[in-house]
């Protein structure tokens, strides 16, 4: 966490943001003695670009957002659902108004409906071995075009650099200012910095509250076997 805090301090100093922001962990930043959710996934560049494509008029007439995410076993699938529900709302710029979920141990599948009758499907499983990088895909389908964070005709994301030597390596570096951090770490620092810069503490808390409600509704759907309306 020290490394991330150092980078955050660097950005705060460089851009003259006179706010004391302390990363409690990768999910929370403390500003004005308030614990604020950073929702760092929103600051991954791929989701920023997907949001811009969807909300900037590149796609016309959105119909469906499809999400699949496979994570390490023994991790919380509802935490993953929280993340993906947030990404659906963030990318689409719409609220989710209903959700139906089926769960089998460490896997779950959900259909959520958003405003304008847009349908989101979310498939989550915690089945990867410890240390394996999450596999995911986010795709938005519209009357005029499809946007996706995985290249056409591929199942997995690509990396920027592949090294084939005695030891095979791969690298994906996406941020010059924060060079050396992973994509996820960069997102944490960027998200905390964005909150400190914008000062939108109440907005972030409201988003968190909505997401907690959605996850509770998801659990209720599993329990009742019925669609839950938000």
């Amino acid at each position: 966490m020290n490394k991330l805090q150092e980078k955050l301090n660097f950005l705060l100093d460089k851009y003259s943001v006179d706010v004391k922001a302390e990363l409690k962990d990768c999910k929370t930043v403390i500003i004005d003695n308030k614990e604020i959710p950073v929702l760092s996934h929103r600051l991954e560049r791929r989701f920023v670009e997907l949001k811009n494509i969807v909300q900037g008029g590149t796609l016309v007439g959105v119909s469906v957002m499809r999400v699949a995410r496979i994570i390490e076993r023994d991790t919380d699938i509802y935490e993953a659902l929280y993340r993906e529900l947030d990404l659906c709302q963030y990318v689409l710029g719409r609220k989710i108004i209903g959700i139906t979920v089926m769960q089998n141990d460490n896997t779950l599948n959900a259909i959520a409906t958003a405003e304008d009758a847009i349908v989101c499907t979310i498939e989550i499983s915690a089945t990867l071995e410890k240390g394996e990088i999450p596999k995911d895909k986010h795709e938005i389908i519209s009357q005029r075009g499809i946007a996706c964070d995985v290249v056409v005709d591929a199942q997995l994301k690509q990396d920027s650099i592949y090294v084939f030597g005695k030891e095979n390596k791969k690298f994906t570096d996406v941020d010059f200012e924060l060079y050396g951090l992973s994509i996820e770490e960069i997102a944490v620092v960027r998200a905390a910095f964005a909150i400190a810069q914008a000062g939108n503490l109440d907005e972030m808390l409201a988003i968190e509250s909505n997401l907690k409600t959605l996850v509770e509704k998801a659990k209720m759907s599993v329990k009742t076997g019925e669609r839950q309306v938000i």
């Binding site: 119909s63 469906v64 089926m102 769960q103 089998n104 259909i111 009758a117 349908v119 389908i141 009357q143």
Partner: peptide
């Protein structure tokens, strides 16, 4: 759930999503 058509000029559904469970518990 049926989603909005991506071809608004056809009279049948073109976008839909399905979830569920098998009798052995598989979702």
């Amino acid at each position: 759930e049926v989603a909005p058509n991506i071809r608004p000029d056809i009279i049948e559904e073109d976008m839909l999503s399905v979830i569920g469970r098998m009798k052995d518990g598989t979702i």
